[in-house]
Structure formats: structure tokens, C-alpha cells
Design a protein around this nucleic acid. Sequence first.
RNA 1: GCCGGGAUGGCGGAAUCGGUAGACGCAGCGGACUUAAAAUCCGCUGGGGAGAAUCUCCCCGUGAGGGUUCAAGUCCCUCUCCCGGCACCA
Length: 864
Amino acid sequence: METQGVREVWADGARWPFAAIEKKWQERWEQEKTFRTPEQLDDRPKFYALVMFPYPSGSGLHVGHPESYVAADILARAKRMMGFRVLHPMGFDSFGLPAEQYAVQTGTHPRVTTKKNVDTFRRQIRSLGLSYDWEREVRTSDPAYYRWTQWIFLRLFDSWYDEEAARARPMSELPIPPDVQSEGEAAVRRYRDSERLAYQAEVAVNWCQELGTVLSNEEVIDGKSERGDHPVTKLPLKQWMLRITKYADRLLADLDDLDWPEPLKMQQRNWIGKSTGAEMDFPSAATATTDRGGVFPREVPENTIRVYTTRPDTVFGVTFMVLSPEHPLVDHFTTDGQRAAVDEYRQAAAHKSDLERTDLAKDKTGVDTGGFVVNPATGENVPVWIADYVLMGYGTGAIMAVPGHDVRDQEFAEAMGLEIRPILEVAGEALPAGEDSPDARYVRSTGPGVSLDGLDIPAGKQAAVDWLVNSGHGTAASNTKLRDWLFSRQRYWGEPIPILHDEQGNMVAVPDSELPVVLPEIEDFQPTGRPEPLLSKATEWIAVTDASGKQWSRETNTMPQWAGSCWYYLRYIDPHNESALVDPALERAWMPADVYIGGAEHAVLHLLYARFWHKVLFDLGHVSTREPFQKLMNQGMILGENNEKMSKSRGNVINPDDVVNELGADALRLYEMFMGPLEVDKPWSTKGIHGISRFLDRAWRAAQFAAPESGDPHARERHRTIRKVGEDIERVRFNTAISAMMEYVNALTKAESATDEDKRVLTLLVSPFAPHWAEEVWSRLGHGESLAYESWPTFDPELAKAEMLTIVVQVNGKVRSTFEVEPDTPKDDVERLALADETVLRHLEGRPPRKVIVVPGRLVNIVV
RNA sequence: GCCGGGAUGGCGGAAUCGGUAGACGCAGCGGACUUAAAAUCCGCUGGGGAGAAUCUCCCCGUGAGGGUUCAAGUCCCUCUCCCGGCACCA
């Protein structure tokens, strides 16, 4: 084979022979433990490169997986060369439903399926040449791992949230109110249980018949399960909950300091959904006492509707009240004449799914109860309705309706023929419902105790809250859409919840020393079809007798898949520790993760849950940082060649194994990084990846070029490339780093020569991106050691400057000419040269320059 | 409806601080090598036009319209479309 212009030094020198070589280096890295994390915490700065670990599905690795892995690997490899102590681990999120559903179909134990899938994933991931420290691999379904997941659960169980200190504290520090104390031990126990961060509650939960389990709010999307898109219905059940709502304010506020993509922060803010306003009491007209004596009671007084509103200032516009159909006071307000209609409506509402109550039923429906409350601002009687547009699950399940200024109330009033009373006007015209205006002023807003007339909206809000507080009719309040995290699942393949129950319904934690509570063996994975945990079939496992001979039964619910992924980044730091989830000194040495790369689909699931657990661990002193992931990046989706999402049904799936076999792991790595910026969606191109193979071939040949006859002709290009690649790695713009290397190789190819320094630098710059290629070249250049810890090349800023600068000359902002100058040519000289330029003179047409702008090293603009 | 992100050649994308728009790659065209093809290498490649033999010049051009500026893909205003999230949350 004769190739023009290439001096063949190597027998296999014309093209990069990846097939023979990639495997060799992978084996060598493994044998030599090249990427083992340094055990000693030396003086070097640390870099923790973290990627979202995969759920090992049966279908194997997808080309989307390597995108985040390779990006993090490039950073890890480059940082090692730049003198950082690097932690770069990988693991598997190996509990979860798909393996169990497979067990239902085939009878294969989830443990068997999971092991097989993990092995496949590990093999595929290893074939990409990622520089993980595999000795730190974690698997969430490994008892040695979930022992600590259970341990964290017990910390949640053994903690309460101190509102004043705004942090979690151990149960041992919970003050017991005297009135509770006086009621005896059982009352104290109940009080304690009611304060725990992990608690049991009877709530209307999301039950998914198809999956055979309940789901958290975050796992339900438009009334369907996030996984599998199955229908979800509401069912009242006693379930384990985690008190994430206590952390809503901190989860919201701490977002501000995180270096995360704005859309992701937005999604979390949106999900937390904080609003501020007031709570206000409307006592029943039948039993009203309107004088509060200036005290707003903590407990809602009998027969009083307590509402939450963001607009207490519109209380003078209230013309009716609406209770959710499930509201406990409906019976009180319903008159005999309305009883039948109300009951019928409540029945109908109970049978509607959430989907029907929201998406499908934008038309307002409701029924008059016949009852009345008193508006504390006006003293008026106000009719009480029920309607399903008011949700029991938000606020107090009751609203004061202001149809003049709230669009939903307006729609309801119009449908039912109720009075609409605008109380805000702009220049004599009523302010339309839902609108805001700095020019709006209150009218008809004077009552016995308060007047808002003439105020603007901000002043009105303040005055209304002041009045509520002083009169005792209300109080300032805020609300979030975030609900407590429903934490129990009725499935098998998850962490058992380490709690024991006695016959009286008391519960105790399994002692830390007895963890892990290992999943029992069962043979029948068929869901019961009822919300009964699969583990209830393991009767022998359930029965526990303690040292004193007392009988207990084990909790049979398991944890959701998100539990294990809430803290795996901590275990990587100290994966084999048997006495703590992580050694405090090591934790301080590595946290927080310097970069966390993964998909945006986890915005309100994994990322919110993990932040919550981390904050609890922080409060209890187990971790040193408030946030786990300081900098986070989302990789974009890799689409099929037809620009559509890859899927089997669309027939556009690219299998990474095939690509590795045909073109090599380095070509796959380089191509995925070259396609475009990490965070954007981009379509795969089979032709495009061939361009990358050509680059590796060209670079392979360049590494064999003889030195030029004399001197160092590529010095400038080389120093510029070092600078550019280094900068682009820092700002995670790998596509432009790769194009800079291409330009450098093109220059060497054109000259058909390269100095030893050219070859050395090229190899080192390429190595984080195409490590097999680089190791092979490095060894052929005569080095015995891996280049993984070679110093990153440095550049001379002087040499990295261009030899000559091109100065653009504009006349009236239009480019008319260019000329070359040496760097640092004085401004005056540049101006003189520009004004003397022939083309420029032609365009000036003899007109004298009115103004000349000289941008050093860039351009001259002559204004005439 | 509300919130967020985006729109640049035939395609993926580049332009980092307001200073030559289109780097790099793909696709395409032409050439060299070859009996031929592949591979490789070299050249051209946003649109339109003028003169001219291969060089020179002009006009238009970063979703649309307007503005600020000596100068706008980049800043401001209005609008269109696309993607994502939330959606009766009081």
C-alpha cells in the first residue's frame, strides 16, 4: 500500500488499526490499575468527576449513555494530567421495576436478571475505554450497599424538623409539649411518630394497578405512571412518607448558588411551587362569632372555613365560597333542600380520576350547599358552594371566590349566575380578572375594621395582611405545590424498610447493628392486584422474636428506586467502609462533586430527592456540604439519523457495540463529542463519524512524519492548539477542542513533517479524547509508561500569538480592505496604513474622514 | 394560559468581551495518483451580479420588523415559529 506523502515508519502505519489495539490498552489499564484513585489525600487539588449511573436495562447500552460518560472521562483524564487528584467512579442503579416485571413474565429471579444486565453494561462500558476506578463500583441492590440506604432511612425515622433552627435534629432532642406529656406514654409515642421525617400516614395515594404499587407525585405525569405510562388512580392508604416539604424553602433558596442549567433550576422551582399570601377564617353564619379578640387560633375553630389565598387584598370582592367536594365541612353547610344535589355531586366527583378533574373538565361544575359564612371584612353573609375545581390537596381545600379578579372564579360565577364584584379599577374601569396593573386602585373596599380604598395593589396587600393579623381573622402564610414524598412501594425488588411493628401498632427501628435487613427469597412475583406488599408472602421472614421474647412483624413495604441513587455519590468516596456510610475525613476531602453530568429528565425526581437526603445528612452532621452537586450539566439527546428520538419502533437505533466493532471506541468517543455542544440534542450521522475515523488515520500518519529539514515550523500552531484545547476543556466545549486538533493535524499533513515535540504534544492533547490511540502512539514514540499521568502540555503565550495580524479596514462600517501588521504595531501606524490603502482611498472618494476608530489588532473603521 | 430555552449555508455546527459571519466536519463539484475502483492527497463550495481568463470588484445575507451604535448573529423593543416544563395550585 503506497500512500502519497506519508513516510511509513510503522508496518501498520497507513490507518489507525484500532481493532487490534484498543482491547490491549483496556487490559493493560486494568492490570496496572492505572486509574485507581489515590489513597493518600496529598496536597494536589481534588477533582470529583461524576456521571449519573445507569439503570442496567435488558436492552443494553444506548449511544446516549456514552455521551455523558465520555464527557466526564475527558475531564477526569485531562485533570489527572493537569495535576489533580481525581475521583472518577461508576456504578449501577440496580433495584427497580423492570427486572421484577420480567420476573413476573418469566419467573426468573430479579437478582439473576440484574446480574446479567449489570455484567452486560459493565462489559459495554469497559469497551469505551473510560478511566473509572472499578474497585469503587457500587450496586444499589448489593446488601453491603443497601445496608447504608437503610441506615439513612433510620436517620430520617429518628429525626424531626426544628422549624426555629431550620434544620433536622435527632428525636432525642424533640421537646414534648406538657399537655402531651401529661396524657401519658402512648400519647408521647404518638406525638413522636407524628414528628418524624419518615412517618406513616393515611393519605390519598397514587395507586398504579398495572405496576402493582403506589407512586410518588413526581412519578405521576398527567395521571399516568412515569414508567410505562399506565393509568394511576387515587386510593386512601396508610403509607410511609418522607417530610421533604419541610425542606421546601431550603431546596428553593439554595438553588440560587448552584451552577446548574437554568431550565433545570426552573423545573425545580416550578415543582416546589412556592406562593405567599394569607390564611383567613370565614365562620359559619349559623354559629358565627366575628370578634376574635386579635388572636388567630392555630386549630381551625368549629364550623369555620379556613382558606388560603394569595390575594387577601381582594377580600371585599368575595361573593361566594367554594369547598372541595371532599372538604369535611360540606355536611355542616349543606341544607336539607340541597342535600340530594350535594351528595350526588360528591359521589360523581369521587369517581372521577385526577385526569378527568383537571385536563378533561375545564368546564366548571358545582353545587350550592345552601349554607352561608360571614365575610370578616364586610360582615356580609356569603353563600358556600362545592366544586371540583377546588382541590382538597392544596392549601386548606377551600377558597374565597373573587370572580372579579380571578379567572377561575369568574368562569364559575358566570356558569352559575353568581355575582361578580370588581374591586380594583384603573381610571374608573374595572381591572379585568387575572390582570395586574401599577395604576389599579381599590374601590368598594371599606368595612368595619379596615379600608383599602384608593391604595395600589402592593399597599393593599400589606394593609390587608396587617388587618388580618391585628384582628385575628387571619395570618400571613405561604404554600408549596410540593407534597411529602410517598416512600413505600408494594414491590419486591427494592430495599426493605427496616422497621418492626408489634401487635398494638407500635413501631421500632431495626437496630443499626442488625442492618442490612436482607430481602427474603420469594418465588412468586405475581402482583396481588391489591395494594398489599409482595413481601407479605414471606411469612417466615416477617416474624421476628426479640431477645426478651416479644413478637414483632417486619415492615413489608420496600423503598422506591430513587432511594439508592439519593446517596451513591457519597459511597463512591469510601465504598468498602463497614463502620460508616463514608469516612468524614474522606467526605470532606472529595465533596462536593466538581461536575455531575446526566440527563435532564431527572430534574424533579433523582435531583430533588438527592438534594433533600443530602440536606438531612448535612443537618445531622454526616456530610459537610449543603449541596451535593455544585456544577451540573445535562447532555442532550442523541437523535436518530432522521432527526427523531431513537426507538426500536422507529427503527433508527444505533448500537454502540456495532460502532465500536466497526470504527473503534476512540472514533465513537470523538464523534459523540464532535457532534456539537454537550447539552444540545443532535442527530447521529453515519457519514459524519467517518470524518472522525479519517481524522484518527491522518493523525496516525502525522505521528510517523519525519522531522522538517530545519527548525520548528509548526511552533505557533502547536502553542495555539495547546491553548485552545486547554481552554475548551475548561469550558466543556469539546467540539471546538476537537476542531482545533484537526486544524493542527491538517497543518502537519500539509507540511508532511512533524518534530518530536509536535508528535509529543499532539499525542498528549488527543489522549483525553481518544485514549487508546494516544497510548499506542505514545508507546511507539518510545515511552514505556502510560501517558495517563504525563504533565499536560504548556504553551508560551508569546508563541501562541499569531505572527502577523490581519487588520480589517471598514469605510462606514463596511469591510473594504485588509492588510497585515506585526503584533503590537502602534495605533497611529495602523491608522496611517489604513488611510493609505488603495481600495480604501477609492471608497473615500476624496472625502475627509470624519472619525477613525482603531480597535487594536482587529480593525480600523473610517467614518466619512 | 404561564415559565424557561432556542432559530446561523444542502446538513451538524463555529464566531469566548459589540469588531472580517460561516472555523472544523459531513455532503457536493473539480483535479492528482490508478488499467480501473477504493483509499489517500490537492483545490473549490452562502446567494446574486459585474468586469475579466482563475484575479479583482459590487450588492444581499444569521426566523420577521424596528431601534441603539462608527460597528449588531451578539445589546434593547415588538412579532412568528420550534423544543422543554408546569397547568383549575386559589
